[in-house]
Structures are given as structure tokens and as C-alpha cells.
């Protein structure tokens, strides 16, 4: 078993075209980051060019190309902003309510996402969405602590998982025992 379901065995290198595309995209992102951090100083390019190059190489070595489209990100951002605002408002209401309306419970959500980055991303994501906190990234499921166990979180988590799958361009692997404890 590997920590957080991240597969660390050597894998065949991604096709050259996909590495080139993802390298270009990441170089553009690092350049943008440099521009922001250097306050747009144009005379910093003798440092910026090698640094962006090295960062891109290191990034490709550490994280193989991820099928994450700009269109997918553009669709994900409004969803995240709105739902995390709802999450903050929900927990703020419960904290300030005189009777402290909480009825927590633990819930094992069986994975449909493939192991790796999508699972880690979803685990971090749900901690920012209303009423859910990831407690363990298991191989068979995500252990979720819920603020209000009376609500139906299965449907909501399925919807979030669908969004994450769309963001990473992955499909759900076939899980023969898709049963909820």
C-alpha cells in the first residue's frame, strides 16, 4: 500500500507530444508567477529565463503531465468559489447559533476516482466545502467527518467527485463493490 494512494512505481514516460504541451503550459504558468512576484520588472529576465526553465524541468520530473484543461479549470473555479462561500457561511451560522446545531458523524465514501492526484485534490477540496472534513484518504474510500450527519451527503459527494473527475479528465474506474457502509 502506498501513502495516499500515490503510485510511486516507475511508469512509462508520457508521449512526447503530451510532455511538450504540458511543459509549455507549465513554463507559461511559471513565467506568470515570476511576473507577479517580480512586480513586472522587465530587467529581471536574465534570472527569470533559467529559473523558469529549471522549474519546468523539475515540475515535469516530479509530476507527469496531468490532463487538466484550461476550460475545465474555468468551469471549476465558479463552482468552488460559490460552494466554499456556502461552506464558510454554514459553519459560521452553526458557530454563532445559541443552540449550536451540530450532529456530527463519520462516513466512509467509497472511491470512484482513480488513485493519485485526483483523490488528494478531492480530499483537500471537501474540507473547504459545506459540512465535510476529510479525515483519512484510504485505499478503498475517503473517511469524511460531517458536521450534520442527518443530511444526505452521498449525493453531494458524488457531485463533487464528478466535478473533480471532469477537472482532471479522468473516468471512474469500475468498483465492483460500490456499497456504502
Amino acid at each position: 500500500m502506498t501513502a495516499y494512494g500515490i503510485d510511486r512505481t516507475p511508469r512509462p514516460a508520457a508521449p512526447f507530444a503530451s510532455r511538450l504541451w504540458s511543459g509549455g503550459l507549465r513554463a507559461a504558468q511559471f513565467s506568470l508567477l515570476w511576473w507577479v512576484l517580480a512586480d513586472g520588472a522587465v530587467d529581471s529576465w536574465p534570472v527569470a529565463v533559467p529559473v523558469v526553465g529549471l522549474a519546468t524541468l523539475a515540475s515535469l520530473r516530479l509530476l507527469p503531465p496531468v490532463a487538466c484543461s484550461l476550460w475545465g479549470i474555468a468551469r471549476f473555479v465558479p463552482f468552488f468559489l460559490w460552494r466554499s462561500l456556502a461552506g464558510g457561511a454554514d459553519v459560521a451560522r452553526r458557530a454563532l447559533h445559541p443552540r449550536l446545531p451540530l450532529s456530527p458523524r463519520m462516513y466512509l465514501y467509497p472511491w470512484r476516482l482513480p488513485p493519485g492526484l485526483p483523490r488528494v485534490f478531492m480530499a483537500n477540496l471537501i474540507s473547504l466545502l459545506p459540512g465535510t472534513l476529510s479525515t483519512k484518504v484510504g485505499t478503498d474510500g475517503l473517511l469524511v467527518h460531517m458536521l450534520d450527519g442527518r443530511k444526505d451527503f452521498q449525493g453531494e459527494l458524488e457531485a463533487v467527485e464528478q466535478k473533480v473527475a471532469a477537472l482532471f479528465g479522468v473516468s471512474f474506474f469500475d468498483n465492483p463493490q460500490e456499497t456504502v457502509k
Partner: peptide
Amino acid sequence: HALTKADNV
């Protein structure tokens, strides 16, 4: 729950 979500917003 209170820390992560409320502080994020």
C-alpha cells in the same frame, strides 16, 4: 471545520 472553512472565506 470552523477554522478551515470560515477562515478561508
